[in-house]
Amino acid sequence: MRPGARNLITDVAGLTVGNARDELLRSGVTVLTGAAPLACGVNVMGGAPGTRETELLAPDKLVSEVDALVLAGGSAFGLAACDGVSEGLRAMGRGFPVGPVRVPIVPGAIVFDLLNGGDKNWTANPYPALGRAALSAATRDLAIGSEGAGTGALTHRWKGGLGSASVVLACGITVGALVVVNALGSVTAGDSRQFWAAPWEMGDEFGGLGLSGPYDPTHEPSPMKRLGEATTIAIVATDAALDKAALTRLATAAQDGMARAIVPSHTPFDGDLVFAVSTGARALPDPAMTPFALGHAAACALARAIARGVHAARPRPGDLQPCWSA
């Protein structure tokens, strides 16, 4: 395996990602969309998720494809970002045809960033406009770190952020990950700057500190956030031709990457969730073994994306936590 040309989820051809942020609000929205509708699955392992339309993604449900996926700050208010994205997609003529009407399918998930120091005293919910702005800004060369839905993210110790990474398998299939890191747990070991994701680092993409540790198996972590204040939400994507059932399995396997990069993860205080999408551009070289390889690649890419998101976070006045890179 090797990183893709951009080391971003948009190394999967046909995908674009848009970010929008509000500096005063200290929050934002990230939108992933494709040149055509995308097959999609989802897996939720956290105890406090906030989602929209994820029930549609079950393998036995009617809708087989989505037009976009939304990751947003704002807790429950942030789910309204999907409305702005849906309006933008409808204006483009995108959506599920129902007679003369097209209905965009836009599942979404949110993180809690209401206590990060930003001004949340709005008179009208800002997230629909942020969602539409993020859709309009969609590009293959997205910025990571303190961008989009990662603008106001926090973790156990470091400022969080938006991360992405990719990998190309020997067979030519590409897998990418996009993540908002707002976790209860820590992305680094002990009091060090050493990322838990270090064993999967490619080159020096998040500092190149190697495997120095310390990794203490006796450590008992204590929560630094309350119920509902944390969550890591992610998307993994591939050009391999997978249906909803296979993508649900891919999302489940990708959760292992979250557990590798955040300690602890999947807690009762987090809403940890992974969407998985496919453009369907490449047939599986081996229907039995290729999904096995894809699951491993997705977990590795997500672990790397988590570390990259924290590594890329930038300091701003009023921050409640230090940046890893500062």
Rank of each mutant, 00 (worst) to 15 (best):
P268D: 07
P126L: 04
N19H: 13
T51E: 03
P317M: 08
E23W: 13
L8I: 00
P128W: 02
L178G: 06
G46M: 10
T10A: 05
D60P: 00
G34Y: 00
H219T: 13
F292D: 15
D272T: 15
A137R: 13
Y215M: 05
T155Y: 06
A254H: 09
D11Y: 13
Y215I: 09
T51G: 01
R90M: 05
I235F: 12
A307N: 09
A198C: 01
L227T: 13
D216R: 04
L89G: 01
M258N: 12
A237V: 07
A134I: 05
H266F: 11
G28Q: 11
V263D: 02
A183N: 03
L69F: 07
L294E: 06
R249D: 13
S192K: 13
G50R: 14
D216P: 00
G78W: 02
K244Y: 02
A299S: 14
F292K: 15
G14V: 08
C300F: 14
D113M: 02
L38N: 10
E201A: 02
L38I: 04
A301H: 05
L15H: 02
S222M: 14
R282H: 09
S278H: 11
I105W: 14
V17M: 10
G50A: 02
V175L: 07
I144S: 06
L69W: 05
A261F: 02
A149R: 12
A299E: 07
V187M: 13
T151E: 03
A240R: 07
G163Y: 00
V236H: 10
L209C: 13
T238A: 11
S64V: 11
A237G: 00
